[in-house]
């Protein structure tokens, strides 16, 4: 998920790393984020499907393009459009166990992969293997465009 700006103090932070309501027993599915600088709690529009549909419907392509551009700079696999070939740059942000498993399955740093789908999960072709990864994992894999991109 992309970073967001705090509407109160303007600090840029990752809502995934800063969930609100840490003490609430029902908090694990909560979409509220808490600004690490000022403590202001707000909702992250990027995490809302309804907000996504709305912005596509009213703001359309320009916003979406801007969003994709922002994600492309960050270079995570989740943001790559299906059909594109990319090179794996970094797996270090993945949990250790998952990273080692992916490397053993053939998705290693330097490897060229093709993105086959981004919904319902990310599906990539790595060599002759097809691997399905939850968005939560593919957003932690840094990639760069392949030679032909």
């Amino acid at each position: 998920m992309a970073d967001m700006d705090c509407p109160m103090c303007g600090t840029r932070y990752d809502p995934m790393d800063n969930p609100a309501c840490g003490t609430c027993p029902l908090g694990s599915g909560c979409r509220l984020a808490c600004c690490p600088a000022c403590g202001y709690t707000t909702v992250d529009p990027a995490g809302s499907k309804l907000a996504g549909w709305m912005s596509r419907a009213i703001g359309g392509r320009r916003r979406r393009k801007h969003h994709r551009h922002a994600r492309a700079i960050r270079g995570d696999l989740r943001a790559v459009q299906p059909g594109r070939r990319v090179r794996v740059l970094n797996l270090a942000r993945l949990p250790q166990g998952k990273r080692r498993r992916l490397e053993a399955l053939g998705l290693a740093v330097g490897e060229m992969i093709e993105v086959l789908a981004q919904a319902p999960v990310t599906v990539v072709q790595a060599g002759h293997a097809q691997l399905a990864l939850a968005g939560e994992l593919s957003s932690l894999i840094d990639v760069e465009p392949g030679p032909e991109e």
Binding site: S28, V121, L131, A132, A134, E136, L137
Partner: peptide
């Protein structure tokens, strides 16, 4: 605890 994200070979 929380669910572990999907990682699967097809």
């Amino acid at each position: 605890g929380s669910p572990s994200p999907l990682m699967l070979e097809l």
